[in-house]
């Protein structure tokens, strides 16, 4: 069973549909018990970081997320929230991965938000098993996670190479939307569902 975390910043329906297409059962929940006992946890998210953090601080979700041992996948805002802090209204985040979320350089000339299909490169870990370098995935975001030792995929936009995906221990996260990235995205989700499986 995959637990999809329910909070105030979800685009949850498309994640459920994507898992359905892969034949995987999921439950949308904010119950710590259910989340902790799930085989895998997906933390989706679309929206504004500080509003989402304000909401999460009022729940038990932050300590629950920090205690997880099973494979975890953050998506989009879900990726940014597990970093240490965000320049989006200068909020501190959950800090599961010690790397900051920065604002794209608005003077560079590229349009912001970064919307559309872009290539991911320098692919590492089993999350990207059998995914070709420079595959296209679908992005929608105005802030980005800086490149660091945790980076397992990069994307280039607004003149910066940033983290398209990060990983530390059981925590994985992607900036793009695998649930909206066609066959490539479905394969990445399917890879996530196999991580750590015996």
């Amino acid at each position: 069973m995959v637990a999809i975390i329910k909070y105030n910043a979800g685009n949850i329906r498309s994640v459920i549909n994507a898992l359905d297409r892969l034949g995987v059962e999921s439950v949308v929940t904010d119950e710590p018990k259910v989340i902790k006992s799930a085989d895998r946890v997906i933390f989706p998210g679309v929206g504004e970081a500080s509003t989402a953090m304000e909401y999460l601080k009022k729940t038990e979700l932050i300590s629950t997320l920090k205690s997880l041992k099973q494979p975890f996948l953050g998506i989009c805002l879900g990726m940014q929230l597990i970093c240490n802090k965000s320049e989006e209204n200068n909020c501190s985040c959950i800090d599961l991965i010690d790397t900051p979320v920065l604002k794209f350089d608005t003077t560079f000339g590229d349009k912001i938000p970064h919307v559309g299909w872009n290539t991911i490169t320098n692919l590492k870990t089993d999350l990207f098993k059998d995914i070709d370098e420079a595959s296209f995935t679908y992005f929608v975001h105005s802030y980005y996670v800086a490149k660091s030792e945790y980076t397992i995929a990069t994307c280039n936009y607004c003149g910066v190479d940033y983290s398209a995906a990060i990983n530390k221990d059981n925590y994985y996260a992607v900036q793009f939307h695998p649930e909206k990235s066609g066959k490539v995205g479905a394969k990445i989700l399917s890879n996530f569902l196999k991580i750590g499986a015996k």
Binding site: R13, S14, N17, A18, D20, R21, Y138, H177, E179, K180, S181, G182, K183, G185, A186
Partner: peptide, 8 residues
């Protein structure tokens, strides 16, 4: 449509 397709 949301069930059928995996693009935005």
């Amino acid at each position: 449509v949301a069930k059928a397709i995996d693009i935005p």
